[in-house]
Simulated scan of single mutants.
Amino acid sequence: MLVCLLGLAGCAGSQLSDTPGATSSGKASYYSDQHQGARTASGERYDRSAMTAAHRTLAFGTRVRVTNLNNQRQAVVRINDRGPFTGGRVIDLSRAAAERIGMIRSGVVPVRLEVLK
């Protein structure tokens, strides 16, 4: 039982606060083109050309600056979906956002997230 509680405490501490200026880091991936037009968790349709992203806990509409730590390129995205659901990843970007930060070729990159609100 104690092990389970400690595990939960660790997960809670890793969540990104929606307070402007809050930061987090981890790995980013991006949506494949096959999701074009599909409904997101917010009810919007996914648009590969929009600057949007999926995050597990941030409120829909939250704006986040995403910095690719490999090249320092940045993009500002709006959270409109839930995910990513692959372990070790903190955000799923739209194709446009992934292009902006230069991650199309690699597919997964280390990033820093900063909440702008």
Rank of each mutant, 00 (worst) to 15 (best):
M1F: 05
M1K: 06
L8C: 05
L8W: 06
C11I: 08
A12D: 05
L16D: 01
L16T: 13
S17D: 15
S17H: 12
S17A: 15
S24A: 15
S24H: 04
S25I: 05
S25M: 09
G26C: 00
G26V: 00
Y31A: 11
H35I: 06
H35P: 01
Q36R: 09
Q36F: 07
R39L: 15
R39Y: 12
A41R: 00
A41C: 00
S42C: 05
S42Y: 02
Y46L: 14
D47L: 11
A54S: 15
A54K: 12
R56D: 00
T57N: 14
F60S: 06
T62I: 08
R63L: 11
V64N: 08
T67Q: 08
N68A: 08
R73C: 11
R73N: 14
Q74I: 07
Q74C: 03
A75Y: 05
V76S: 03
N80T: 10
N80H: 06
D81T: 00
R82S: 04
G83H: 09
F85G: 00
G88D: 04
D92L: 06
D92E: 12
D92P: 07
L93C: 14
S94K: 04
R95D: 06
A96Y: 06
A98S: 13
A98N: 12
R100I: 11
I101S: 09
M103C: 15
V109L: 04
R112A: 06
R112S: 08
L116E: 00
